[in-house]
Design a binder for these strands. Structure first.
Lengths: 193, 193
DNA sequence: GTCTATAATTCGATAGAC
DNA sequence: GTCTATCGAATTATAGAC
């Protein structure tokens, strides 16, 4: 992105930028927006706090860069219509186990308006457009996507943030068993007449 | 609680205490734990910031008092077995529309360990014991309660915190229509063999 | 490009007068 | 019981030396 076209060698500053971003993701995920300090992030990245400001301008700017997130939703046109829910749950679980970004976004969205706005964007744009591929009417599509988001985010919230014991202890396959039918019905269920 | 037995007249301090608590709930609900300052809460309650400290000792103590929450779950033994999900969704929606306490707890649980602990207590104790009334095996009961919590908290999170447009626009009856079958299955569905 | 020093706020908490 | 005054700590952000 910032690297000049004539250079193949990554610049020193790019390494530093990446280290800052990685540390920021971990801190925001663990502590939330307010408690994650620039000082702590800089210490984790083994650099001076002023470097963070130099590269990202402000704390908000840093969060904006660290919380960039793509759901990477798969193409659902090839999926058997009866297994949409199952595919989606599996995808989400795989997508955010081992990646702190969504947890960071989830924690920050509770208190930071910008993070909430980004959250709305992710689930309103990315998810809605995927749901729309097997088109229904427009406002119904939005509601189906919203309902899917409510169960998916509730799953993430109870498992990764609040850490409700039973939700932490269930292994992915058991979660799929229970939650897949829910998403399936939200996606393809007959709406109220 | 603090009023002496021989007095029927509420003391002046009790009025102040209640005003502080009300302002605290609103601020914690609107801003989260870190951004809600004692100074702002005191200003809302039209008293001096030092009074808050005098009555509640610390910010954590104030939050502990303001975030006390009882789900007030109804007795489910008289409910037709096929309508458990519907009754529960209706109860939850009615319980927290117009009461800031759960929203405050929800926002704070993302960043404050004590709030998360309290959240676990509420949904592990209160909800689990209700689910246990129509007894199944113990670890299954805990999992059913956890799954119910995941959908209920996901609903609250998307509707009141992130404010996903479709989740905000749906009226309570439509939410009941979609979510009730989910809870019904989590409560009474046949587990994996 | 990296770091030192520090400005400018803001917050929780305390001491003490009235 | 209520308020004034203030401490001490922590934070983001900036200015500037090397």
């Amino acid at each position: 992105m910032t690297a000049p076209a004539h250079s193949t060698q990554p610049r020193r500053s790019d390494v530093t930028r990446a280290a800052i971003l990685q540390a920021a993701r971990e801190r925001f995920a663990a502590d939330g927006y307010e408690r994650a300090t620039i000082r702590a992030i800089a210490a984790d990245a083994r650099i001076d706090p002023s470097m963070v400001m130099r590269y990202y301008g402000s704390k908000e700017g840093l969060f904006g860069a660290a919380a960039e997130f793509d759901l990477r939703l798969p193409d659902l046109t090839d999926v058997p219509p009866g297994r949409l829910g199952e595919v989606l749950v599996r995808h989400f679980l795989a997508r955010w186990e081992g990646d702190d970004t969504l947890v960071a976004l989830l924690r920050a969205a509770s208190t930071n308006p910008g993070a909430a706005e980004r959250m709305r964007g992710i689930f309103a744009d990315q998810l809605t457009s995927t749901v729309a591929t097997f088109g229904t009417e427009e406002t119904m599509t939005a509601r189906r996507a919203g309902l899917v988001a409510s169960q998916i985010l509730g799953l993430a919230f109870t498992r990764y943030i609040v850490r409700l014991p039973p939700m932490v202890e269930m292994d992915p396959e058991e979660l799929v068993f229970w939650v897949a039918p829910t998403l399936q019905r939200y996606l393809t269920g007959q709406p109220e007449s």
